[in-house]
């Protein structure tokens, strides 16, 4: 089930430095949103606030589904996920990393294995399945991060700079995965990137972020 996200007049500052100012936007279902803008424009902070990792100083983040506003509890948190620019892989196999989200939800058995294997296949890491995830290249690590997030079937998936420090071949693979996520999984995806060409290739809607504010283009 997809989620709709509405950000209303969000403000955030760190040590007196205003990073997000009066930011408002509504994200509808099943689209790919690209949040673009220069470094330091507040993209990452905005994604972290939307992913409920941080609270805004002022303003409101509201999630709704089928016209119903949802409480910001663990259940909602488990339907939203953010892939960080540094993915944060566990010192364990690729399989264990990708299955983490299912394991903490108490999912077990054949369904578990089938889902994990399908996801490993989806991001093209089948031949690395038993390898320690810390040994992957940066492109493979990003794919692992996406698989780890996608396996929990999120209503909204946030990707923060998924192709920074990734080679061209892996950038292409990751972009294909993002497009397939929308088609096959009907996931709403919000991608923060400073790459304007990527924004054009992927985005159904491109939003410009400048000086802590969203400007639709």
């Amino acid at each position: 089930m997809n989620l709709e996200l509405t950000a209303s007049n969000v403000y955030k500052s760190y040590n007196g430095n205003q990073v997000i100012r009066d930011c408002s936007y509504s994200f509808d279902m099943c689209d790919i949103y690209i949040l673009t803008g220069p470094n330091g424009s507040g993209k990452s902070t905005f994604l972290r606030i939307c992913a409920l990792l941080e609270n805004p100083d002022r303003g409101e983040i509201e999630y709704s589904s089928e016209q119903r506003v949802l409480k910001k509890d663990l259940e909602l948190r488990r339907r939203i996920t953010l892939v960080l620019p540094r993915v944060g892989v566990f010192n364990a196999s690729v399989y264990r990393n990708i299955s983490y989200g299912l394991a903490i939800r108490g999912i077990k058995g054949g369904d578990f294995r089938e889902k994990v294997n399908r996801m490993i296949e989806f991001v093209g890491l089948r031949n690395k399945k038993d390898q320690n995830a810390l040994t992957l290249s940066s492109g493979e690590t990003q794919r692992l991060g996406i698989a780890r997030a996608l396996i929990i079937e999120p209503g909204i998936l946030f990707l923060d700079e998924p192709t920074t420090s990734v080679d061209q071949a892996n950038t292409g693979i990751i972009e294909d995965i993002i497009l397939k996520m929308k088609e096959e999984h009907k996931t709403t995806v919000v991608v923060a990137t400073h790459d304007k060409d990527q924004a054009k290739r992927l985005g159904d809607k491109v939003l410009m972020m400048n000086d802590g504010k969203i400007i639709p283009t």
Partner: peptide, 19 residues
Amino acid sequence: VIRQASMTLGATRSQVTIA
């Protein structure tokens, strides 16, 4: 980042600690 990663995947506080 390990702590943040497990939080983004929906871990509870105790699950984050275990991770």
